[in-house]
């Protein structure tokens, strides 16, 4: 197990290298002279040259990369041009909000998706299975922002049960206040992922239910609960876990939309603002942060694989 984790960690080195190169190139792949874009159309030659030196853009590319990556490792992610603040603390603070939203969504999606998938598979072809899979289809097809608006109208405006924007009520910072603000955006964000998780769980469980070891488990006189939740689910879980891991990536992307709709102060809003303002250091910071998180989550999923399937760490 330890050697398996170590191997995975080493495997991350090229991935992270690729990510940093990509993030670094954003500055240089964007059309035009970054300094010119940053300073706007009215900038003078002198001020452009000055900014280029200040940003190190007059150096050769590989020197620029090494300087940049060195700074990144030391926690110096540059300054946001627009907000006039250090990028790293800014991104880290906003990321917390996104993290809370994404985590809540993946929990909702997993609990309901896996639950629905198990019941559907167990009651295969029953009306319960059919109606649940129909709902899954709807959840899958609804656009995130549309579902967000619908939830806002129904539960926020009409029923007035829950707040529809922001993370806290004015002048408050309580945990439960935050949870109340979290419910609607988290549901809006989780629908698509929940639908995909439910379908994968169903097909994976259906496959496992026909296996010999399920018959063996029943022949021992085990309770159905143990047959389904231990013998079947533990085997069916690997493909489900893969899907959950993939969904986390989509959720991070979907969070941008949901954050806009619900004015959730996360990294999505930060990024959109950064792009609109051509705030390169900020955009770089956001992407680097999200990409690193994504890689870390995938490592976590890989480790979970080995926990759920003992055969994996031997391969």
């Amino acid at each position: 197990m330890a050697s398996y984790i170590l191997r995975r960690l080493f495997g991350l080195v090229p991935v992270l290298f690729g990510v940093t190169v990509l993030v670094f190139s954003i500055m240089h792949l964007s059309p035009g002279d970054p300094a010119k874009i940053i300073l706007g159309p009215k900038a003078t030659e002198a001020s452009i040259a000055k900014l280029n030196t200040q940003l190190g853009l007059d150096q050769p590319l590989h020197t620029q990369y090494i300087t940049w990556i060195g700074n990144v490792f030391q926690g110096d992610w540059g300054r946001s041009i627009q907000m006039k603040m250090e990028v790293l603390p800014l991104v880290a603070e906003r990321f917390t909000a996104t993290f809370i939203l994404t985590l809540a969504s993946i929990i909702i999606a997993s609990v309901f998706g896996i639950g629905a998938g198990i019941i559907s598979a167990y009651k295969k072809y029953s009306w319960l299975d059919r109606s649940m899979m129909f709902m899954v289809l709807i959840g899958f097809c609804l656009p995130v922002f549309w579902l967000g608006l619908l939830l806002q109208i129904v539960f926020g405006l009409n029923l007035d049960w829950l707040p529809i924007s922001g993370m806290y009520s004015a002048g408050q910072d309580g945990f439960w206040d935050m949870i109340r603000h979290l419910i609607l955006p988290a549901i809006a964000l989780s629908a698509g992922a929940g639908a995909i998780i439910a379908r994968m769980t169903r097909s994976s469980m259906v496959e496992v239910f026909s296996q010999d070891y399920i018959r063996t488990a029943r022949s021992k006189g085990l309770k159905e609960k143990n047959v389904v939740l231990i013998h079947a689910l533990k085997n069916a879980f690997i493909p489900v876990l893969t899907v959950i891991g993939m969904q986390i990536g989509f959720l991070l992307a979907g969070a941008v939309l949901v954050e806009m709709v619900f004015a959730w102060p996360g990294i999505g809003t930060l990024m959109v603002n950064g792009i609109l303002a051509r705030d390169f250091p900020l955009v770089q910071g956001v992407i680097l942060f999200v990409a690193t998180t994504y890689v870390a989550i995938n490592l976590l999923i890989d480790i979970l694989y080995a926990i759920f399937d003992p055969r994996i760490s031997y391969k």
């Binding site: 010999d212 070891y213 063996t216 022949s219 533990k234 085997n235 003992p310």
Partner: peptide
């Protein structure tokens, strides 16, 4: 019936490769 299975009557199957659960010790 569940109480009979395993306790009074038990069964072994043809293929020991697939009859044991691969992910449980």
């Amino acid at each position: 019936y569940r109480r009979v299975r395993g306790k009074d009557i038990s069964m072994i199957f043809q293929d020991p490769m697939t009859s044991l659960n691969p992910v449980l010790t």
